[in-house]
Simulated scan of single mutants.
Amino acid sequence: MRLLLIALAVLCLTVVMPQKGMANTIVAKVDVSEQTMRVYRNGKQIHKWRVSTARKGKWTPRGAWSAKWLSRHHKSSLYNDAPMPHAIFFRGNYAIHGTNQISRLGRPASAGCIRLHPSHAATLFAMTRKVGLKNMKVVVQN
């Protein structure tokens, strides 16, 4: 009887408590043709935001990556110290970040990065910090 109670207690704890292998995941899925980003937490869409990707003559890479590093108050070393607040770098110099050119969101305007409204960038940045870089995926498609 004692073993049965212990087994039942262990079963209850495994159902109630989250498992290590079931960490929260965030996916930022960017559709270049729509100029939108859909954000998913654990497979469920929680946000849909307008973005700006590469303007004519520039390129936003397509593919899937894990977030590599974060920079809260980043300034571009390539483009005259342009502000890149709440930057989430996913491939080399490419990042998702806030922009002060809010009126251009929803159409191509960047040099290749994925631009967001500053409040959306801050939200995504905080979510990424919470789940960890390895649990934040960036997917960019046409």
Rank of each mutant, 00 (worst) to 15 (best):
L5N: 12
V15L: 11
A67L: 00
G106M: 01
W69A: 05
Q101C: 10
C12N: 10
A121T: 04
V39K: 00
Q35K: 04
R104S: 13
R115C: 05
R55W: 12
S76I: 06
T36A: 08
A28V: 07
W59R: 15
S119I: 08
L3I: 10
V15T: 06
V16R: 08
L3P: 13
H74Y: 06
V139T: 04
K20Q: 12
I114F: 00
P108Y: 01
D31R: 08
V39D: 01
M127K: 02
W65N: 02
G98F: 05
L133R: 03
V10W: 09
L105C: 02
A87V: 00
A126T: 10
N135T: 02
V10R: 03
V27S: 09
A126Q: 14
H120F: 09
A121I: 00
L70D: 04
P108M: 05
T36S: 10
T123I: 13
Y94Q: 03
R62Q: 15
T36R: 12
V131Y: 05
V32W: 04
N100A: 12
K130G: 03
R104M: 11
R38E: 13
Q141E: 14
A111K: 14
M84K: 03
A109W: 11
R41P: 08
N142V: 12
W49R: 07
G43E: 07
P108W: 01
N24W: 11
S103Y: 09
I114T: 05
Y40L: 08
Q45F: 10
R62L: 15
R72Q: 15
L8N: 02
A28K: 03
T36V: 12
A109H: 08
T14Q: 03
G57I: 03
G112W: 00
I88G: 07
C113A: 07
W49F: 09
L8M: 09
Y94I: 00
R50I: 07
T14I: 10
I26A: 05
G92H: 06
H117W: 07
S110F: 01
T123P: 09
Q19Y: 09
A54N: 04
H74R: 00
V16A: 14
V131W: 06
R55H: 12
D31F: 04
A126G: 11
K56P: 13
V30G: 01
Q35V: 04
T123S: 14
A9L: 14
S33P: 06
A87S: 07
G57W: 03
I96W: 05
G43F: 04
R72E: 15
I46W: 07
I114R: 02
G106K: 01
L13D: 02
G92I: 06
K58F: 15
W59E: 15
K29G: 07
A95P: 02
M136S: 13
